[in-house]
């Protein structure tokens, strides 16, 4: 993470400061020498035991934010942030600090678990590598720990499955393996990057229930990245809505869904007809995603917004508290 000193003025700390586990302030990410940041001035908190869903269309920058926090972003990117503070430790511009936390205090699971596991090692060996990295164990103890880890994610017959290779397991099983792998370091924060994309609905629910149970049991914070609004509503405590690299609304999941304040969130919510709809098949939002290789309006939603005024195109709206208990970045919020 190649952090520069923040060039964007920090917002006047409107977020509740009950010593969150993770606090991100003024995070901007630039790609390949572009002038327009791909992620612009994003701030959010996650408390212990809390699940925050970061919701947005593909290309909105949600995965990039996750990778930045974990310090595994491609080197072509330039990151600037006022603060990325984890449990009081400053991570912005300190690759070594992130390195020390990654895999231990911060765990991560990805989508498409089968491709995210090495095809030439048994799943037990891969979990063993992670356990051995964090704990000094003898052979037999390590084997027991591997079986234990697989059992903890409800994999049936864990002793036999430990010897299996990813191609021998179903997608859901691979996702459980990856969850076990992320949990091996007993993290305080789990970053789940679209963990159930590509799985069928039953498996999806099983995995997320498991994840929620583990998080609840261990008071683990979860940053849940998804484009699936239904899942965000069902599994997250709070929701942050991202549009084209800008955080437009943030608040309790129920509030955001029942009474969205930002026009974009409102359109998202309205576009969800049934429980399982996803942003991917939204038909209802006019206009297209702004092209970040050229100049964009200050509020990047302005060109798609029917409430936009001149000010929206020249002055970036800040996240401000909106009643009852959320925040929105909009000059003309709803309600």
């Amino acid at each position: 993470m190649n952090a520069l000193t923040a060039i964007i003025e920090p917002p006047p700390s409107p977020l509740p400061d009950s010593a969150p586990l993770l606090a991100v302030r003024g995070l901007s990410i630039f790609f390949g020498g572009r002038i327009v940041p791909t992620v612009q001035d994003v701030s959010f908190d996650i408390a212990r035991g809390e699940t925050l869903a970061l919701v947005g269309e593909s290309g909105s920058g949600k995965s990039i934010i996750a990778h930045t926090i974990a310090g595994i972003l491609a080197s072509a990117a330039t990151v600037s942030a006022t603060t990325i503070s984890f449990n009081g430790i400053e991570l912005a511009g300190k690759p070594a600090a992130v390195e020390a936390l990654r895999g231990r205090r911060i765990g991560m699971v990805f989508q498409n678990a089968r491709a995210a596991l090495s095809p030439t090692l048994s799943v037990g060996a891969q979990i063993g590598d992670v356990i051995a990295r964090h704990r000094r164990l003898r052979r037999t103890a390590l084997r027991a720990a591997i079986v234990q880890a697989l059992a903890s994610v409800k994999i049936p017959d864990p002793e036999r499955r430990a010897k299996a290779y990813p191609h021998e397991l179903s997608g859901g099983m691979c996702q459980r393996v990856m969850l076990a792998l992320a949990m091996a370091g007993e993290p305080d924060l789990l970053i789940a990057d679209e963990p159930t994309t590509g799985l069928d609905n039953t498996t999806q629910a099983a995995i997320l229930d498991l994840l929620a149970a583990e998080a609840g049991r261990r008071r683990m914070a979860t940053l849940f990245i998804t484009h699936d609004l239904g899942l965000a509503r069902d599994y997250a405590d709070r929701v942050a809505v991202l549009h084209a690299g800008q955080l437009v609304e943030e608040g309790r999941a129920a509030t955001v869904f029942d009474a969205p304040r930002h026009p974009y969130s409102a359109k998202l919510v309205r576009a969800v007809p049934a429980k399982a709809a996803t942003v991917a098949d939204l038909g209802g939002i006019p206009g297209k995603f702004p092209d970040l290789s050229g100049p964009v309006p200050a509020c990047r939603f302005a060109d798609r917004c029917d409430r936009a005024v001149d000010r929206c195109r020249v002055e970036v709206p800040r996240l401000e508290p909106v009643p009852p208990d959320g925040m929105a970045a909009c000059w003309r919020p709803l309600g």
């Binding site: 990654r102 895999g103 765990g107 995210a116 596991l117 090495s118 590598d129 964090h134």
Partner: peptide
């Protein structure tokens, strides 16, 4: 993807 996983796992 699997090298990304390995990095994220702190190996």
């Amino acid at each position: 993807d699997f090298v990304r996983t390995a990095r994220a796992a702190g190996l």
